[in-house]
Amino acid sequence: MKNLYLPELVTIEDITNEAPDVVTFRLVFKDEALKESFEFKTGQFGLYSALGLGESTFCIASPDTRKGYIECTFRKSGRVTGALAAMSVGDTMGFRGPYGNAFPIEDWKGKNLVFIAGGIGLPPVRSVIWSCLDKREDFGDITIVYGSRAVADLVYKEELAHWEERDDINLVQTVDPGGETPEWKGKVGFVPTIVKETAPKADNTIAVICGPPIMIKFTLSALEELGFSDEAVYTTLENKMKCGVGKCGRCNVGDIYVCKEGPVYTAAEVKLMYNDF
């Protein structure tokens, strides 16, 4: 019998502490055949189990250009994420997926890219960033604007340092006013303000944004002011999910099932949705 709700076993191969209560797991399927055959597309998500305590939904934070493993980044905030965060390298957990649609990265060849993320919104954007960096020659200018409330809350600090060093990426880091430290060399200000200040050119450019709802709302206006069309702006929605396959009935925004028809949408599509966020 084909069991939609049966998780696969994965081993935690590596753990990175990103920020207070935020960790990244690198996961490898226990089943050798599945390890070889598993495929996903950047933008898809999965359901991760602390077996015995339940499942949580996170995006796959690693790019589809890297095979043999998947990564997820999550904040410890409840029963399942608390149990997962307490696990160690070598421990076993469950995974179901991949589910949902993907970013149409193939269609972006030859275009400039702007990535905008806030706080824990970077993981889904990070998978897109690496998918594009792994095929760097396919794209024009790459700009990344990333901000968080405070310096300590920035995730992927090592990767940020790497992106900072590269001369084929324009990385702009910012923290909310009051979140800076004496050593902070980045900007101070809210993400939408910094996006306006950075002013990436809209011509032949795709923007990918993810972050808290309030950040998304004001960043969309900022991009509009900069001349971005709603069709050129992509985001990935998050909603509470239990099944991931369009049955359990809780991720819908009006008549749209985020788990099956999303989570990736253009700003134009988001604007047509019911106000059910």
Binding site: G54, E55, K242, C248
Partner: peptide, 13 residues
């Protein structure tokens, strides 16, 4: 009505 939850019930073992 079709909504459901998926929960783990029992002990850890």
């Amino acid at each position: 009505c079709h909504c459901f939850d998926i929960t783990d019930e029992g002990g850890f073992s």
